[in-house]
């Protein structure tokens, strides 16, 4: 969540006063199920969320099987096909951006690279960056959020101030600046994965205060709850209380917010690539393809529509699934 103004993610949880009234009376009758089981049952009933989940699974599968898919249906992502291009105008020959049985999603203008392969490889990068940066945000957010909420005092005020500060920071601006000056190859990795790591770090870093705030708030309220008091009076040490008593109770909101931060990260990664500081060529990324399409969209709209639609579908699926997951885990927040 480092995009500030133009992709905004808001805390939409607002606990209702009385949860019971919302509940189906039949649910009350079912006894002895764990929270997990209940949530799973609820999630399964939410057809929209399940749909989103399935699309996500398919995307993950595509990303994993990318090399195989390209062998079967495509061409190497960096292979030029100049015979598919009108040499004077640089536009793909044929209708709809050169879509054909051989080139399932057409070819890129100017160089004739296979868009299908580039979309598939783009999915790999996009999902990797989005998942890992969400993971990084979560770890940092949980660590700092719990510390702040549990320890309190000056530790809390320092961490809270840092979070406030980071949220008041022009993040997109800063991400662009940082990413653009960092070297493209590091640690013996090629430009694609080295830049992915940079993106993961930057996006993940700016995202943690969102999780941190929520975790801190939850920790604060849990700290005063009876079972924590009880375990403390039984002589449990702080680490035990933190990890054995509190963390399991925080798992649900953490899971929900991690899921909801993924689509935002996808948008951020695409935005950075769009602005020219993302995955460098010749490696494909959806945002980078959109940015290339800027020069051609009037005469080759498919080149814009395909990566745009991919971003849309992916983000939408995560949002649908995340919403469903939240409803399932926390029925109070409807």
């Amino acid at each position: 969540m480092s995009l500030g103004p133009e992709t905004s993610l808001h805390d939409e949880t607002t606990p209702t006063a009385d949860a019971a009234q919302e509940r189906d009376p039949s649910e009350k009758a079912i006894a002895g199920r764990s929270l997990k089981q209940i949530a799973w049952r609820r999630l399964k009933k939410d057809r929209v969320a399940v749909g989103g989940g399935i699309v996500i699974l398919v995307l993950i599968l595509i990303a994993i099987l990318a090399p195989l898919l390209i062998k079967l249906f495509g061409h190497p992502f960096d292979e030029y096909h100049n015979d598919k291009i009108d040499p004077t105008l640089g536009l793909p020959l044929g209708k709809l951006g050169g879509i054909s049985g051989d080139y399932l999603l057409g070819v890129e203008p100017v160089n004739g690279r296979d868009i299908f392969s580039r979309i598939v490889y783009g999915a790999q990068t996009t999902l990797t960056v989005a998942f890992l940066s969400a993971f990084l945000s979560t770890i940092l957010g949980v660590l700092f959020g719990m510390t702040a909420g549990f320890v309190g005092g000056w530790v809390d005020s320092i961490i809270s101030r840092i979070m406030d500060f980071l949220l008041a920071f022009p993040q997109l601006l800063f991400s662009i600046a940082l990413v653009s000056v960092l070297p493209q190859t590091m640690f013996g990795l090629n430009a694609r994965w080295a830049r992915s790591i940079v993106l993961i770090c930057v996006i993940g870093f700016f995202g943690w205060p969102y999780i941190g705030r929520i975790v801190r708030g939850q920790t604060l309220s849990l700290r005063e709850r009876e079972f924590v008091e009880a375990s403390r009076s039984l002589g449990a040490r702080s680490p035990r209380i933190l990890f054995r008593e509190m963390l399991p109770n925080l798992a649900a909101p953490i899971l929900v917010y991690t899921t909801l931060i993924i689509p935002t990260n996808i948008l951020t990664e695409a935005a950075l690539s769009f602005l020219g500081v993302g995955i460098p060529p010749p490696f494909p990324s959806w945002g980078g393809m959109l940015s290339d399409a800027l020069q051609f969209y009037r005469y080759d709209p498919m080149f814009m529509i395909i990566p745009g639609a991919m971003i849309f579908i992916t983000v939408l699926s995560f949002n649908l699934f995340g919403d469903g997951l939240r409803d399932a885990l926390d029925p109070k927040a409807r």
Partner: peptide, 14 residues
């Protein structure tokens, strides 16, 4: 090197 792909990358013959 492929003279034509390089030329196309520069914007084509025109």
């Amino acid at each position: 090197s492929d003279p034509t792909t390089l030329q196309t990358a520069r914007g084509g013959p025109v």
